[in-house]
Amino acid sequence: MSHETDTDDLAANTAAGTGTGSAEANRAGLGTGSGRSWRFETARQGLSWETHYKPVLKYVALAILMIWMLFPVYYAFVNSLKTPEMIFTTSLGIPFLTFDPVAFSGRNAWRTMWSAFPFGRYLLATFVVSVGTAGLATVCAVFAAYSFARLEFPLKNSLFVLAVAGFAFPIVLLAIPIFVLLQRIGLLNTYMGMILAFTAFTLPYNIWLLRGFFEDLPENLEESARVDGCTQIGAFFRVILPLSRPAIVSVFIFAFLLAWHNYLMAFIMGSDALHTTLPVALLELRGTFFVRNFHYIMAGTFLTMAIPIVMYMYLQKYLVEGLGSSAGVKG
């Protein structure tokens, strides 16, 4: 697809010199001789956007978008490399990457943040909760989605609607009852409680994504496997699962990120030091000697952002497909 546009632009560019545009010229060429020069005139006008403005404007637009998108990330990173004193001398607040020998000789936030604050433990807690959530949610969602996509059972459609609707329900509305429930059964401040809660929040979306994927697979695959000697379940395990890896991976990532991103439930359910996740820790840090800890906060912020951004970049293709299809984009 990109190729087509490419050659099209190229054709238009070369054509501009001789006063014809690719498609227009072809069509004009078929016209009668008398009208020909007039037609070429309009053709050139129509192409000026294509040939003159668009190639420049698209780069300008891309540059603006990229600066806007990446500036906060850059800001957090560069400021994390500076000492608080240096930060307060930035002009206009636009930080530049300057190398301060002092900062690199031991006062660098990236070296000292681990001892100044228990960032290691925050990171570990965030990872445990995120990986646990992603694993549990993926397993549950794969089975549920296949069930919704292919198996028959009573109340199927109602259950599906209920499951999906659960996702749209704001977490803050569930926070209080869940808090009370988990407190009663003693799952507050446990990884188990956090994982269960996050899984429940992310599941509807994961089920929905995977159901769409399974439904798009040709049913003949399972039928063929059944003719070849599998049960329906056997066909699922032997034929469908192996070829669903991209979808399963993206669901895993989505669930991982939901847990990684979550502040509200993590704040409510993991209030002791052992279960504090990075987002919770960041907002707590802000409250304590903000100025003195500025570079630590920036380092923590960058760390919290960078890990999911790297994951997104790495899995961009899958995620774009997954997200795109999730909003009902067809074909």
């Binding site: 003949n220 695959l221 039928e223 063929s224 003719v227 034929v239």
Partner: peptide, 28 residues
């Protein structure tokens, strides 16, 4: 179907995408 000892060819062939030709044929 698995107990009927039949074989079937589908319109879209329904080859298992995650298996080689050999594995496809050996599957049954």
């Amino acid at each position: 179907p698995k107990d009927r000892e039949i074989s079937m060819v589908f319109q879209n062939y329904a080859l298992y995408p995650s298996m080689t030709v050999y594995e496809n044929m050996a599957f049954g």
